[in-house]
């Protein structure tokens, strides 16, 4: 029963197939028009790809240039911010400036030495 149904279905489908095949478009026309279309976008895609590569290279150069400039400016700014060791002053240096600074300051070495030796010289004279 099932096999008979299958056979009937197959026959019906094959009739439909025969009908379709008789009205099928010609292969050559369909394939060759596809071939023509296939060759056209290939060229377009190639030129598009080239443009994209040029744009990417230009973008890369721009990014590198900007990065280089930023880095250079950073160096200059850092150099301006960091003072030389000879000119550096402590931030708390102002606190040491008091009115009696002269009293607290040690006496000059040369003066004290001379002061200590002068009376002896005088005695010996």
């Amino acid at each position: 029963m099932i096999e008979r149904d299958d056979d009937e279905l197959r026959t019906a489908f094959h009739q439909l197939r025969g009908n379709d095949v008789a009205r099928a478009p010609e292969f050559r026309a369909l394939f060759e028009s596809a071939e023509r279309v296939a060759s056209r976008p290939a060229r377009r895609f190639a030129s598009r790809r080239k443009l994209r590569m040029i744009a990417a290279a230009a973008g890369l150069l721009l990014v590198l240039g900007v990065a280089h400039e930023i880095s250079r400016r950073g160096h200059v700014a850092r150099a301006a911010l960091v003072p030389a060791i000879t000119t550096w002053k402590s931030p708390t240096e102002g606190l040491l400036r008091t009115s009696d600074r002269e009293l607290l300051a040690p006496s000059p070495l040369l003066t004290s030495v001379l002061g200590a030796t002068a009376p002896h010289q005088r005695k010996g004279e």
């Binding site: 019906a12 489908f13 009739q15 439909l16 025969g18 009908n19």
Partner: peptide, 8 residues
């Protein structure tokens, strides 16, 4: 497809 297979 009426001739042969419209039913299908």
């Amino acid at each position: 497809s009426s001739e042969l297979s419209a039913g299908l």
